[in-house]
């Protein structure tokens, strides 16, 4: 084969693959928005209506319980994971640890990062059984926080690493302690840190495998931290193949809500990252 023909063929293939992926994205988002949006727009109240007493059978009421459950589980989990992951990321910088220890910890973080979410779910469930508790909202929070921790640590670590050294040097030069310097560095890396937190939130709100066995799959409004709760992904998972068309349509509407939320979070993370860029030395003027 002529080398120029080969070149043309592969250039075409590369373009075609990229086009294929965009087409798939369009199909996925399009189908979700079309099927879910139709249900949602004909009856937007399903999002703010509590479920009826025989919800799984006749789809009476709405899925406010899953919307609230998602928020009550993912917001506290994100806060916990944020505090932990920021501290870990600070530790991984050279101020607190030697290069060797941070290499070792990075290795463990990579393993955690690649661990299937279902393993976290099983892990938290075994703890629930061990302490003799019942599946409930608080364990959903724990499971999601564990799931988010390695993801957010990776983002935070990358962000802190990319902060200019001059910030750190100037801070130490003024006689600041390590903790004070870490605060300044976090501030300098704020766009990346915030983008990472939002991405962690988006991953947490979309994950079903970790909370499937830990949050309790209830079909009632969440009562308190020790009561069973459910989240939007669990609701979609359980109702997507239901025999009742009404119950199934709620899964579509829930997926519409979920995809809109995730897309909004991604846009927000890009916008906020731009907005906070003014804290970055040499960033946006």
């Amino acid at each position: 084969m002529n080398r120029y023909t080969e070149q043309r063929i592969f250039a075409f293939l590369a373009r075609a693959s990229a086009a294929l992926i965009l087409a798939v994205l369009a199909i996925v988002v399009g189908v979700t928005i079309y099927r879910g949006g139709r249900v949602f727009l004909t009856d937007p109240a399903v999002v703010i209506t509590p479920p009826g007493s025989r919800y799984m059978l006749d789809g009476g009421g709405g899925f406010l319980h899953a919307v609230l459950g998602s928020l009550f589980i993912v917001v506290p989990a994100t806060i916990v994971a944020m505090i932990l992951s920021l501290s870990t990321a600070v530790y991984l910088q050279s101020d607190y640890s030697s290069e060797r220890t941070s290499d070792v910890i990075n290795m463990f973080l990579n393993v955690l990062w690649g661990t299937p979410p279902i393993v976290y779910g099983v892990f938290v469930l075994t703890i629930i059984i061990a302490v003799g508790a019942q599946t409930s909202l608080i364990f959903g929070v724990i499971a999601i926080a564990i799931f988010q921790y390695p993801i957010m640590t990776r983002y935070a670590d990358e962000a802190l690493r990319s902060a200019p050294d001059a910030v750190k040097e100037a801070s130490y030069g003024l006689g600041a302690t390590r903790f004070e310097t870490a605060k300044v560095t976090i501030r300098a890396a704020l766009p990346g840190v915030i983008a990472g937190i939002i991405m962690g939130f988006a991953r947490g709100i979309g994950d079903a495998a970790t909370v499937l066995f830990t949050a309790g799959r209830s079909t009632q409004m969440p009562g308190g931290p020790f009561d069973p709760a459910t989240t939007l992904p669990i609701l979609i998972f359980e109702q997507a193949a239901s025999f009742n068309a009404e119950v199934r349509s709620h899964a579509y509407a829930a997926s519409f809500v979920l995809i809109v939320a995730v897309l909004a979070l991604i846009v927000a993370s890009k916008l906020l990252a731009g907005r906070y860029a003014r804290f970055t030395p040499g960033g946006r003027q």
Partner: peptide, 8 residues
């Protein structure tokens, strides 16, 4: 595409 939840 990478951020869309797998349940969707």
């Amino acid at each position: 595409l990478a951020a869309i939840p797998s349940v969707i």
